[in-house]
């Protein structure tokens, strides 16, 4: 399902300096797997997520998702791919604070100029699923952390993507909310999604639903 082949990523800081974030790594993730990338911040696990989501392109090597070479997709096609195949959950939720809950959840659909009925059906489905429907007209900035998290998950799900990517999803949550999140993950895994979580939260390392823990350090896999 997801393959990173001999992938290296270097960031150019300026002409003479560059930082190697990933150094010749290879990862294979099968369909329906839940994989946890473990590592301290700066270890390169976020870069792996970015590569899978085609948010950035590898310096050497390639990234193949669903038999598609996403590392070679032009910008617009990378966006389409993200729109259809990837649900991204960020550490800081990355919602637009001055938009309402439903406007935030609808954002991925906006460029496609969706049919109103269809959009509403999708919206209602995910708001129901992640238990946020009662707040649909509330401004996101006045929500609690847990609610914002659920809005972010709902937004990631509006197109029912096959792959869920989460970057430090529990970093801003207390333990109870973290456990809630894990329950949500369980539901997603049961519905057959492929899930990649980058985290250093020990809560994830011994979970029954986690198929594999990959440890990343200094841009290499241990």
């Amino acid at each position: 399902m997801i393959t990173l082949k001999n992938t290296t990523k270097t960031y150019e800081i300026n002409k003479n300096n560059s930082v190697t974030a990933l150094d010749n790594i290879t990862i294979n993730i099968k369909e329906g797997e839940l994989v946890v990338l473990k590592g301290v911040s700066g270890s390169g696990k976020s870069t792996i997520l970015s590569l899978i989501a085609a948010l950035t392109k590898p310096t050497i090597g390639e990234v193949i998702v669903n038999e598609k070479r996403v590392s070679k997709l032009p910008d617009n096609f990378a966006s389409d791919y993200r729109q259809q195949d990837i649900g991204f959950i960020f550490q800081k939720y990355n919602l637009i604070p001055t938009l309402s809950v439903q406007d935030n959840i609808l954002l991925p659909l906006v460029p496609t100029n969706p049919d109103e009925v269809e959009a509403k059906a999708k919206l209602d489905r995910v708001m129901e699923q992640f238990n946020i429907a009662h707040k649909k007209d509330t401004m996101v900035r006045s929500l609690s952390g847990g609610e914002q998290q659920r809005v972010a998950i709902a937004r990631a799900h509006i197109n029912d993507p096959k792959i869920i990517i989460a970057d430090e999803p529990t970093a801003n949550l207390d333990e109870k909310l973290s456990l809630d999140f894990i329950e949500i993950l369980r539901g997603l895994k049961d519905s057959g999604k492929t899930i990649v979580v980058a985290t250093h939260d020990p809560l994830f390392f011994n979970l029954d639903i986690v198929d594999r823990v990959i440890e990343v350090q200094g841009g290499k896999i241990l």
Partner: peptide, 16 residues
């Protein structure tokens, strides 16, 4: 198109 250099990515942006 086949290059993975920073330059090629830059060109893709400039084409926009």
């Amino acid at each position: 198109m086949s290059a993975t250099t920073q330059e090629q990515y830059g060109l893709e942006k400039q084409s926009f």
